[in-house]
């Protein structure tokens, strides 16, 4: 099995992705509470939308490298669509919100349980993570154009095989 990420690594290591990831982390852990809530909230969403589709594409390539090399455009669109639909669901659907709260709550519970087990502390209680639905967050959806452009740009710069003209 191939373990490299030849197709998506350029986009994952692109300065735009790395800057967005750093902004996401800095914004959530330092700027929130200091800056205006409107700005810090939207900045998180834009940074997340810029990073997540590329990461999803990287995971897809990690699992099925041949598929991604052959259908990278389709998988790029699928990644952006999945992330976009997730954001829409989180803002508009209580069912999606609850599923998200349970999924991340389970991940936190597993991580905290592991830390508690290693340190000999008491097992933590399971708690759902909280979400703050805000319909205006949907205005950040155009940020999905960033990973689309980025992957497209890095693929073309790398020199993807030229398209064969369709035979009429």
């Amino acid at each position: 099995m191939k373990t490299g990420l030849p197709c998506s690594s350029a986009a994952l290591l692109h300065p735009v992705t790395l800057t967005a990831l750093a902004l996401w982390a800095i914004n959530d852990h330092l700027l929130k509470g200091w800056g205006p809530a409107l700005l810090t909230g939207k900045l998180s969403d834009v940074a997340g939308l810029a990073v997540c589709p590329t990461v999803l594409l990287g995971i897809a390539e990690w699992c099925t490298p041949e598929l991604l090399q052959r259908y990278w455009r389709a998988l790029l669109i699928a990644s952006c669509t999945v992330i976009g639909l997730l954001v829409v669901g989180l803002e508009l659907s209580p069912t999606v919100q609850l599923a998200y709260q349970h999924a991340l709550g389970a991940a936190w519970f597993a991580a905290r349980s592991l830390v508690a087990w290693l340190s000999g502390a008491r097992a933590p209680a399971f708690a759902l993570v909280s979400t703050t639905p805000d319909v205006t967050d949907l205005l950040t959806l155009p940020a999905l154009a960033i990973p689309c452009w980025l992957v497209h740009h890095t693929q073309l710069a790398k020199g993807s095989p030229p398209r064969v003209p369709a035979r009429i």
Binding site: L5, D28, G48, V55, T131
Partner: peptide
Amino acid sequence: RALLAKLVIGGSALVALASS
């Protein structure tokens, strides 16, 4: 590069988890 890309994937997952 592949290793660094995987680190970025892991880092993104951690940032996403830590933000909620």
